[in-house]
Design a binder for these strands. Structure first.
Lengths: 237, 237
DNA sequence: CTAATAGTGTCTATTAGACATTATGTG
DNA sequence: CACATAATGTCTAATAGACACTATTAG
């Protein structure tokens, strides 16, 4: 048989295959707390429970898996997050009552203010502090996916500046240090933290200053290539 | 409708979904060269081309995605590799002529000698030097998946001892350093390399020695937890 | 002035890189 | 002995951590 004949007669439903979905762990930072976006499930299974934003690939609308996750996040937040990264893919027989199921999971980061207004208008999406997650009963294995996303972000805090994407476009070094400290669960030396970022040349002075209590702080902006930089030496745990 | 009723009537083929497969980039090291396992495709599409070992989830036989990839690797090599790690999941409309397709990719490492005999008996699987890959025309996007796996392994060489799994169970520090040097494409300082491994306490002296030309070298074995260790400081690029 | 927070100066202990030296095998 | 490779000793420049200090705003 030629390949042409094979493709002409190919039936994608001839073989049983796992259910395939996409899920996103969207983090943000506000007032000293890391938060994750949860949505209320409006359909079976696990209807009424809260879980991660996500869904199925739309074979017409989506060109890639990343298109799918971005489309889903935009539906819930109104905006496209500035940082999206694949986390891991989980597939097994037991995670979904419908049967063998695979989910391609992503971690995404966004500034709280970016999607504040949109989320405030809907009742089926909300930010939940990571600290408050333990009490909740989430759909499927979403709690462990969030834990994996949080662990990945913690690792990123050790060797990159990626956690900065949880902050507004213009941010202070103090805020950035606080995000890292929350992720790592320990205080960092101000001088060391600033030295490594300055040496890596990852941010630019916007010329503006924050207007808080005490001495105003310089507002910086990430350089476009900042997310790809990895420090030679990690912060210590 | 209750969840029970929903699940009873659930039809997994009601909606169009992408084709889902699993692929593995299996690396080994022999005589100064990194090699990757390729298999010849015996079915359409891309029949006759060489590509990565992989295939479809068997909903009956496989409990998890990792079961699938290990089953496929065992079919081709006769053994289960000591190191298997998820690489990334690639899904888009164009990578497979059959339509929207998703592949969950893994990186795996094994000692060349472990599967030498089995591979020598089959004609549809072979080791290919990474250096010789450029000339070949592989199936689907497998060449770029191999490049991603190689890049991941290079990163691991910078901050972990994971490349040791390309070596036999008992190996010398010189051999390990050579693997790292090939991955990084630059020579390393012997003293520095040994110091960091000794300090991290990742290997044990087997008491045996290698029998090559020159002074015999101590044969070491990896500690079980060695794959999880990350050095605080990376090797420099 | 004080309080509060931002930002800098500087000492020191640690350590990776460099490379010289010693050790242990074979013929 | 020479030769080859393994393994170690040791100097030095670089630097992260620690923390004291100075700077800049508000009131």
């Amino acid at each position: 048989m030629t390949e042409e004949a094979y493709l002409r007669d190919y039936d994608p439903k001839a073989f049983d295959s796992p259910l395939l979905s996409v899920d996103a762990v969207l983090f943000t930072y506000r007032e000293g707390q890391l938060k994750v976006l949860l949505v209320e499930r409006s359909n079976h299974p696990e209807m009424g429970k809260w879980g991660l934003p996500g869904g199925f690939v739309d074979l017409e609308a989506d060109g890639t898996l990343e298109d799918t996750v971005i489309r889903k996040l935009q539906e819930k937040t109104g905006v496209v997050p500035p940082y999206v990264e694949q986390l891991s893919t989980i597939g097994n027989r037991s995670r979904d009552k419908r049967g063998w199921s695979v989910t391609v999971c992503y971690t995404a980061l966004i500034a709280h203010q970016e999607c504040e207004t949109h989320i405030d208008t809907v009742s089926d999406a909300k930010w939940v502090n990571l600290k408050d997650l333990e009490k909740l009963d989430l759909a499927f294995d979403h709690k462990s996916i969030i834990a994996a996303g949080r662990e990945r972000l913690k690792q990123k805090a050790l060797y990159s500046i990626v956690p900065a994407y949880t902050l507004p476009e213009k941010f202070t070094l103090s805020d950035l240090q606080h995000v890292h400290e929350v992720l790592l669960g320990k205080p960092l030396q101000k001088k060391s933290f600033r030295r490594r970022i300055e040496q890596a040349d990852l941010i630019v002075d916007t010329g503006e200053k924050s207007a808080e209590k005490g001495r105003p702080a310089i507002l910086y902006r990430l350089k476009p290539e900042a997310s790809r930089h990895t420090f030679i030496r990690n912060l210590e745990l």
